[in-house]
């Protein structure tokens, strides 16, 4: 593997992250959790235990339209349930936010990304998963909700071979 190629990839990643960081705020619930830093609605959001309540808390509606313009990338089987890498990208215009949910977690809201108007709607995040579950990604584009989901298995491991 040529070092140059690695550097190029890192640079691309950093440029993307910088662009994102410059114009947006990211709140990874459960990762950054000093309660005094959170607004009241966020406190309530943390307390929700169902997907519908979570969607309602964050987006004001529990329904969204399935869309193949929302791409959710997540492993079929998590290598470590404590840090499952997921990324969401969308080709939809005027995206205000990208949000992630794990319905089987006790607290289903996993991450809320508020995007500035010039941000490229593409995020990556490590999420915690207690058990095998769908991972749901919902984006708000032109005020409408679009989403998609993918099943990620969390296993006890071992026994291969």
């Amino acid at each position: 593997m040529a070092t140059q190629e690695i550097d190029t990839q890192r640079r691309k990643f950093l440029t993307g992250a910088l662009a994102l960081g410059g114009v947006s705020t990211a709140i990874g619930l459960g990762v950054l959790a000093p309660s005094r830093a959170l607004a009241k609605w966020q406190e309530e959001a943390i307390m929700t235990t169902s997907l519908d309540d979570g969607l309602n808390q964050v987006l004001g509606s529990s329904t969204y339209q399935e869309s193949d313009q929302v791409q959710l990338d997540a492993p079929e089987v998590a290598e470590n349930g404590a840090t499952v890498p997921v990324s969401v990208e969308t080709s939809l215009p005027n995206v205000d936010n990208i949000t992630l949910y794990v319905p089987e977690n006790n607290a289903p809201i996993s991450a809320v990304f508020e995007l500035g108007s010039r941000a490229r709607p593409s995020i990556s995040q490590r999420i915690q998963m207690a058990d095998t579950s769908e991972v749901v990604a919902v984006v708000k584009s032109n005020g409408q909700l679009y989403g998609t989901s993918r099943k990620v298995q969390v296993t006890v491991g071992g026994c291969g071979g």
């Binding site: 079929e76 089987v77 290598e79 890498p85 296993t155 491991g157 071992g158 026994c159 291969g160 071979g161």
Partner: peptide, 15 residues
């Protein structure tokens, strides 16, 4: 990394 001890190669991901 799931079927065998992932801690032996913590920085490597497969799939």
């Amino acid at each position: 990394p799931i079927a065998n001890p992932g801690y032996m190669f913590p920085q490597w991901s497969m799939g």
